[in-house]
Amino acid sequence: MPVDQKRINGPESSVPYNIYIHSEIKNKGIQPDAPKRHDGRSNNELRNIFLKTGIISQAKGSAYIEMGNTKIICSVFDPREVPNKTGYCVQGELFCEFKFAPFSHHKRKMHQQDAEEKEYSLILQRALEPAVCLQEFPNFQVDVYATVLDNGGSALAAAIMAASLALANAGVPMFGLVTASTVGIYDHTYLVDPTDTEETFCCTKSVPGTVHNHGIIIQAALPQHGQISEMFVVGSVDTDTIVHSMDLISEAHKDICPLLEQCLVKTVFKTFRPNIKKTDTK
């Protein structure tokens, strides 16, 4: 691998210490049949969500989301001309960049975007595009940057929500808010809003020779219009399972959407209150 001249480089190869943890401690993980999950939730329960907008003063719009341990910060900037573009384009574009901070994952992430992050960037873009009135800024692109500070599972879904809040905060014309949620599937267990350990569990663990369902489904939707803006399945699941988890997810969307709305209402109040005070003093 070529040496990155623009950064301070450590040793050529290093290994995380977690892999040397004794295997007995490692595997105490997850029982799919247990009545409660390892963090005390029931299978259909979402984690608490904390939302805040306007967290980055330098950006046009920004949002911060916390779902359990997952922490994501997202910012949106003014439209700029699409670079390297010849000819006129009727629709504007969204440019999304999704990045895990190097320390956000249990395995250290490199500074350059890897294949997973590139894929997630594309998913983020496709999840948001149906919600943004792209015809309002022809030939221009809006930049959306999402950075995962701490990955506690369901990072992509949280990033989609943060990005939609940031877009709304930036005043980009939109058809509606985008919500997203994740379901982890293991056999007949559906884990809504899985944590990172549950995610890896659902993704990799499978008894060879059996036909267990396992996988992860992420769905982004515009709940105000009842439309699905992005669907992402990975694993090995049959169509009935997908249909069932879509029902679960749409339930979750109904719970999440008011939270985002409330957060935006609060932002509006916050932007107007200081003005009111100022006029009072005048």
Binding site: R126, V211, M231, V233, V234, S236, V237, D238, I242
Partner: peptide, 11 residues
């Protein structure tokens, strides 16, 4: 008959 991956494309 199982689905191993699925992605939506387009705007």
């Amino acid at each position: 008959g199982k689905v191993t991956s699925m992605v939506k494309q387009g705007y």
